[in-house]
Design a protein around this nucleic acid. Structure first.
Length: 314
DNA sequence: TTCCAGGAGAGAG
DNA sequence: CTCTCTCATGGA
């Protein structure tokens, strides 16, 4: 089926920005598994072409699909509200149309448990192996893939099996959380009803889910755009470009929310992906960490932060 | 060989 | 509260 008049949207940046680990580029289309079916999506200008491995009822599928890609949101307006300086402006211009997905909750929880101290290509491989072993086989034309394993499947797997998939020391974290979902201790349905702070706190109780992973889940699945996952790159960006000093996570969080406001999650995603997509910031001039790598260094001169605008004091 | 990757837990101070 | 060490894996 087709979806027309999709403006200010980039399928490429949305699916390649490290928030989902399940998309493969096949020629000019993207194939991936979304909640038990394979979708094949391509974009030509403002038109999206979508094929599904199952017979979808358009009246229910289209709203679901648009929500998955966050097409209902006025993203340009949101980006306008965080477009405060030359750095963020450049990422917004370069990655114009990148959206934050609304992904299935259990897959997002499991995927970002596996993401800790890990890199994207290896995360993708682990998830692929888990799905091959514990998921259901799906196909669309000649393309084959597997659904994401259910909580029950991972809860009853042997730890040796999980290790064979490459999960490493994260196997027990994954299994503990899978079991918590199965026995109702972690109720996914009610998690969706909670506010951002409540949902984050509930997630963080689980072994293997810390602040960063909880924020990824809140942002990439639960739609909490105030969530700010702080990984090593986001930390570097805020320390070098904005605060110009070493800073704790708490300081970065406070500054970032104050500076970007409720859309800080979107701002974060543009900054994050820009660093990976455009290596110019990793160059000596901007993201050089020479000054910051040496530890106790608030004394590097308090060159004034790029931004001092306060956004909506609450 | 060492370092790093969308970190978190445990322990010490 | 902040710092430090360790954890399994594979690519650079």
């Amino acid at each position: 089926m087709q979806i027309q008049n999709v403006t200010d949207f980039s399928l490429k940046y949305t699916l390649e920005s490290g928030q989902s680990f399940r998309w493969n580029k096949i020629d000019d289309a993207y194939c991936g598994v979304v909640e038990g079916r394979i979708l094949k999506i391509s974009q030509q200008g403002t038109t999206l072409h979508v094929e599904s491995s199952t017979n979808e009822d358009e009246t229910t599928f289209l709203p679901y699909f648009r929500h998955y890609l966050d097409l209902e949101r006025d993203v340009p307006k949101l980006l306008g509200e965080v477009d405060n300086d030359a750095y963020i402006h450049r990422t917004i211009q370069t990655l114009w149309g990148m959206h934050i997905l609304n992904q299935e909750l259990w897959e997002t929880i499991a995927s970002f448990i596996l993401s800790q101290n890990n890199n994207v290509s290896r995360i993708r491989r682990i998830i692929r192996r888990l799905s091959e072993r514990y998921g259901k086989k799906l196909s669309i034309a000649a393309y084959e893939d597997y659904s994401f394993p259910s909580p029950h499947a991972l809860a009853t797997a042997t730890e040796a099996d999980l290790l064979e998939c490459g999960t490493g020391y994260r196997a027990s974290y994954l299994q503990d959380t899978a079991r918590a979902v199965v026995n109702g201790e972690l109720a996914l349905t009610s998690l969706k009803q909670l506010s951002y702070p409540e949902a984050k706190q509930e997630l963080i109780r689980r072994k293997g889910i810390g602040e960063k992973v909880a924020d990824c889940i809140c942002l990439f699945s639960l739609g909490h755009l105030a969530a700010l996952p702080i990984d090593v790159w986001i930390k570097r960006i805020f320390e070098t470009l904005y605060l110009r000093r070493r800073a704790t996570h708490r300081e970065i969080r406070e500054f970032a929310y104050n500076y970007f406001g409720d859309g800080v999650g979107y701002a974060q995603q543009y900054l994050f992906h820009y660093v990976h997509e455009c290596p110019d910031w990793a160059d000596t001039e901007h993201l050089s960490l020479i000054n910051l790598k040496q530890k106790p260094n608030p004394a590097v001169e308090s060159s004034k932060p790029v931004g001092t605008r306060t956004h909506r004091q609450s």
